[in-house]
Design a protein around this nucleic acid. Sequence first.
DNA 1: GTAACTGCAAAATATTTGCATCCTT
DNA 2: AAGGATGCAAATATTTTGCAGTTAC
Lengths: 145, 145
Amino acid sequence: MKQAKATAHTRLIKILKQNSLNITESRKKILQLFLEQDGALAHGDIEKRAGEKFDRVTVYRTLQTFVNKGIVHIIPTADNAIRYALCKDDCSEVGHDDHHIHFVCDNCHTTYCLDDIVTPDIRLPKGYSGRHVEMVVEGICKNCK
Amino acid sequence: MKQAKATAHTRLIKILKQNSLNITESRKKILQLFLEQDGALAHGDIEKRAGEKFDRVTVYRTLQTFVNKGIVHIIPTADNAIRYALCKDDCSEVGHDDHHIHFVCDNCHTTYCLDDIVTPDIRLPKGYSGRHVEMVVEGICKNCK
DNA sequence: GTAACTGCAAAATATTTGCATCCTT
DNA sequence: AAGGATGCAAATATTTTGCAGTTAC
């Protein structure tokens, strides 16, 4: 699996460079967690999985940097635990463009970005104008059914 | 306006009684804030508007009680500030049933429940089954346009 | 009178900031 | 070398818990 690993590593570097970020251990590690993961990650998940390796503050700052650069986006959920997920390529510092929906499993609490499902258009009441639609579906995921 | 006030007060009592909650000052006051308000309220809003009247802890506990009883529901937002809004009559301790969408104004940050707009059905990928759909639209509201 | 509710104090968590040091370019 | 990133300590902010006193029924 040396090939795959090299490729993954290259991808990390590429993403960081594209966003004019210095290549550092913490950024590589945290970004890797996102890449090797289907779902979204909360701040706590990252601290756990990084394995005591980074300071809590570094995780906060790195996530903030990634959000600012449009590398990850925030998924709002009702349980007050902010989750982050990788953005598609069409996100950037200028603006996020994540029109897909999110899915949170009631059972395992994994959070997925369903990239292929686009948020539907909504007819708003008179006087309102929409700029962005955020949509989260709760239910049972493919692994828990 | 004595009539209106009496009616509003009656409504407060009715809601609390329906949920077998004791009628207390803090519950009346906090519930009143929701009733006299078009949009949703965050914990902080309530502390401010209640006017130093209640302990912070009481606000936390009262909101928790209201959520448990199905009197208010939580609106998830990306800014990590949980907002609460009154539920329609079809919510209860057994389960929330808020199928309407929410609207957050980019300008004034007021959060509305658009009760008349029902969340659309979503076709999920194979293996996923949805139980509940949460939808938040961001944009400019009727008062800020 | 009894159970439920509140306020206060304090603990437990979570998040932010300042600064000296270290790393990337 | 210079600017940026990290770690540590500490300041803030947020939320939870225990308990004694008070209130609703």
